[in-house]
Computed example of a mutant assay.
Amino acid sequence: MKILKRYIFSLIVLFVTLIITSIDFNSGKSIINIAVDSFKQMISVLPPIMLLLGLLDIWVPRETMLKYMGENSGIMGIILAIIFGSVAAGPLYAAFPITAVFIKKGVKFSNVMIFLGAWCTTKIPTLLFELSALGYKYTFTRMFVNLPFIIILGYLIEGLLKEEDLKEIYKN
């Protein structure tokens, strides 16, 4: 029963897909093609991420992470979180295993949130595309508007969480 509960959403999606396919075969085929393409993309991205995570977990001691991105890291932790998020490659779902390692290593929760915000909005490949397609004025305006809000939201999220919630996050 626990397995069924865990995969209930996937089973519902599968059931709905089967219904759609039985009503309109081309729509069902399109749904399946999109799902297969998404799965292929995910499989191509996750193994290198997992390899890098394993290396990060082994090569970077917890004390080093605490020193540079931990509770007393100050501006250095914020800068490193933004840099790590900006040089990242891949879709957002690839960032979540990295955040899990950061939490395991004791990275301050606001820095974890800043990392996620930077991953979403300041990635270098995205900036290069924006520069070529939308121009430097738009790109740098967006960057200078986004960066302060990423930092503010990181601290706001950490501040809104109760102490026991944070402890539970770090425990799990």
Rank of each mutant, 00 (worst) to 15 (best):
P97C: 07
I78P: 00
F140L: 15
A88S: 15
M76E: 03
F149M: 13
Y138M: 06
P97L: 05
I103H: 07
P91C: 04
S132Q: 13
V87E: 10
R142E: 01
I114S: 03
T126L: 14
L128C: 09
F129T: 11
V87G: 12
A94E: 02
G85W: 03
S73V: 02
M113A: 10
I98L: 14
I114H: 05
I79R: 12
R142D: 00
G117S: 11
M143V: 11
V101T: 13
K137Y: 12
K108I: 02
A94Y: 05
L147E: 01
T122G: 01
V107L: 06
L147P: 00
K104V: 08
K123N: 07
T139R: 05
K123E: 07
G77W: 02
F144L: 15
G85P: 01
P125Y: 14
G106A: 10
K137S: 06
M143H: 03
L147K: 06
A81I: 10
F129R: 06
T121Q: 08
I103W: 08
G90M: 06
A81Q: 08
P148L: 09
A94H: 05
A94C: 14
I124D: 03
L66N: 11
I79A: 15
K108M: 08
T122Y: 01
I103G: 00
Y136C: 00
I150L: 10
Y138P: 00
F149C: 09
V145Q: 02
I124V: 15
S132T: 11
G77Y: 02
P97I: 09
C120P: 00
A100D: 10
V107F: 04
T99L: 11
K105C: 04
V101F: 07
A133G: 00
T126Y: 14
E130L: 14
M143A: 07
A133N: 08
